[in-house]
């Protein structure tokens, strides 16, 4: 386990290094922030001073080294727009995004697992066919459109749910959270559902496929031959096996959810990282973009590690000491 963790950390460091270069180059190629940040009326002198202050006069590789050196000290640059450390801006908004993403994942499991289980156990029932047909909608409807429809119905027509913002928040562990207040939960409801829609469909399909496959295994028949109740066969023998692929995919998908929360956050004016990055791209706030992308890289690496560890806990045949 220790050997495994050490090796994974080394791998992670290498990945972060490569990604930092790619991110830096990619963002550099997007556009020239000077045109946006410095007013056209500024004279040559003012212009040069600003360029110097932002470190944009150095050659590219030097800018990268400066960036890397600073990054190692936890400094990913200052936002051109807010004139605040980019990392601080990202970290401030991360809880809002995490809250949404975790909420969506939990919702996807709570809804997807039972429906998928049912559809897998009764593949020919009318209800199962309905579930599967609906899950196709969940896959194919565009997120922003569903978001707008949710607002139309629940906020505009029925007036049941608020459509923007985080609502009332409570401070816990130094940051603000919505899920601890009723008003906050009401504000979370629509964006969470919106973000969860794709995942619910995914979990339903994975679970159903897993159940159908597992039901045919000899060990399930043997469990039945032992005279166990159908509930025990389903919830212990079958469920524990299908949890392995579901946890893997949902875990890996978690990074994607955070990345794709951009759309949902924009639709519901949810003040998370996604909204920040869209705003930053609009004004070419390069340090924020870089900091955001680096955070996402770190997040993906962490998620992969957590998924691997969970996987090994669920499946006794996987040994972490072995090849990764």
């Amino acid at each position: 386990m220790t050997v495994f963790l050490l090796r994974r950390l080394l791998q992670a460091a290498a990945v972060v290094l490569v990604m930092s270069l790619l991110v830096f180059l990619g963002v550099f190629a997007i556009g020239d922030p000077i045109e946006i940040l410095i007013s056209p009326e500024a004279d040559q002198f003012e212009r040069e001073r600003a360029i110097k202050a932002l470190g944009l006069d150095l050659p590219l590789w030097q800018q990268y080294l400066v960036f890397l050196g600073n990054a190692l000290q936890g400094d990913l640059g200052r936002s051109f727009v807010f004139n605040e450390p980019a990392l601080k801006l990202i970290l401030e908004r991360m809880p809002a995004t995490l809250e949404l993403a975790i909420g969506a994942t939990v919702l996807a499991l709570l809804i997807g697992l039972p429906l998928g289980l049912y559809a897998g156990l009764k593949p020919n029932g009318a209800l199962s066919k309905g579930i599967m047909a609906t899950s196709i909608l969940g896959f194919s409807l565009p997120t922003f459109w569903v978001g707008l429809m949710l607002i139309m119905v629940f906020a505009v027509q029925l007036g049941w749910l608020p459509s923007t913002g985080r609502g009332e928040t409570v401070t816990l562990l130094g940051t603000r959270w919505s899920f601890l207040t009723l008003d906050g939960l009401a504000h979370m409801a629509m964006p969470t559902l919106n973000l969860a829609l794709f995942k619910i469909s995914l979990v339903i399909r994975l679970t159903r496929a897993g159940v159908r496959e597992t039901m045919l295994m000899d060990y399930v028949k043997f469990a039945r031959a032992k005279g166990l109740s159908p509930a025990r066969v389903t919830f212990v023998h079958v469920f524990k096996n299908i949890l392995i692929p579901v946890v893997t995919v949902v875990g890996l998908e978690f990074g994607g959810t955070i990345a794709f929360s951009v759309v949902t956050e924009s639709v519901f004016a949810w003040p998370g990282m996604g909204k920040l990055i869209i705003d930053s791209i609009n004004v070419l706030d390069r340090p924020v973009m870089v900091a955001y992308l680096m955070m996402i890289v770190l997040l993906f690496i962490t998620i992969n590690l957590v998924v691997d560890i969970t996987y090994s806990l669920l499946d006794p045949r996987v040994r972490l000491e072995g090849k990764s």
Partner: peptide, 30 residues
């Protein structure tokens, strides 16, 4: 009656035991 008065042993021993459950779980439940 199944597993109690009438029991069956399967063809392929590699496939009859649930891979993610410990032997004690699989015996005690029986």
């Amino acid at each position: 009656l199944r597993g109690n008065r009438i029991a069956m042993i399967f063809q392929d021993p590699m496939m009859t035991l649930n891979p993610v459950l410990r032997i004690d779980t699989q015996m005690i439940e029986t």
